[in-house]
């Protein structure tokens, strides 16, 4: 199959299911690009994910890095457009209905129903990423520290990533 077309449709499908943002599809992305297509390993995925976090802009750029890994700049663009376009068009169509039913009961119910699903999906994503990244106790300690600091302080994420980088450099 045409690689660029495959990248586009893969991420288009995933983005249409990405309730609560692209992060909630991390296990699904891993399933597709690691288990089924063997483009990268789980550990490579966790490293690309870290690079996407360290760059400015939306976290969805992980898809661009996967596309780049598979098919260079064209691959990055195919994956990015796939992630942006179908869900964007869907939002356009829904935006009018959404506004009209601002106070409707079903809208509140639907919103309330989505929240725990999103929470569960992102927890799963975290579990998968932690398992992939933590190959030793030092790295596990880095993860726990960064989780706690992120929860309890207002420290900028970049400092936590830099701290992890240093810890990896010195202790592993």
């Amino acid at each position: 199959m045409n690689l660029l077309g495959d990248l586009f449709t893969l991420f288009a499908k995933l983005s249409l299911l990405a309730v609560g943002g692209v992060n909630s599809t991390v296990p699904a992305i891993i399933r597709m690009v690691v288990d089924q297509r063997h483009w990268i390993t789980t550990r490579q995925f966790s490293q690309l994910f870290a690079i996407a976090q360290a760059a400015p802009g939306p976290n969805m750029l992980i898809v661009a890095l996967i596309g780049q890994h598979v098919a260079g700049v064209a691959g990055a663009l195919a994956a990015t457009v796939g992630t942006v376009l179908p869900s964007g068009i869907l939002v356009l169509y829904v935006s009018n209905i959404w506004h009209r039913f601002q106070h409707a009961r079903w809208r509140r119910i639907l919103q309330a129903a989505i929240i725990p699903i999103t929470g569960g999906l992102i927890l799963s994503a975290a579990y998968v990423l932690v398992r992939a990244a933590d190959t030793g106790w030092v790295l596990a300690l880095v993860t726990v520290t960064s989780t706690l600091l992120c929860l309890t302080t207002r420290l900028h994420p970049l400092w936590l990533l830099a701290g992890g980088l240093l810890a990896g450099l010195i202790f592993t």
Binding site: A50, Q53, G120, L123, G168
Partner: peptide
């Protein structure tokens, strides 16, 4: 080594986000 450490920290960030959202 440095990217491995950074990946561990990034996993921690998403874990924190997940906890906040859950």
């Amino acid at each position: 080594h440095s990217v491995r450490g950074m990946a561990a920290a990034a996993a921690g960030l998403i874990a924190a986000t997940a906890i906040k959202m859950a």
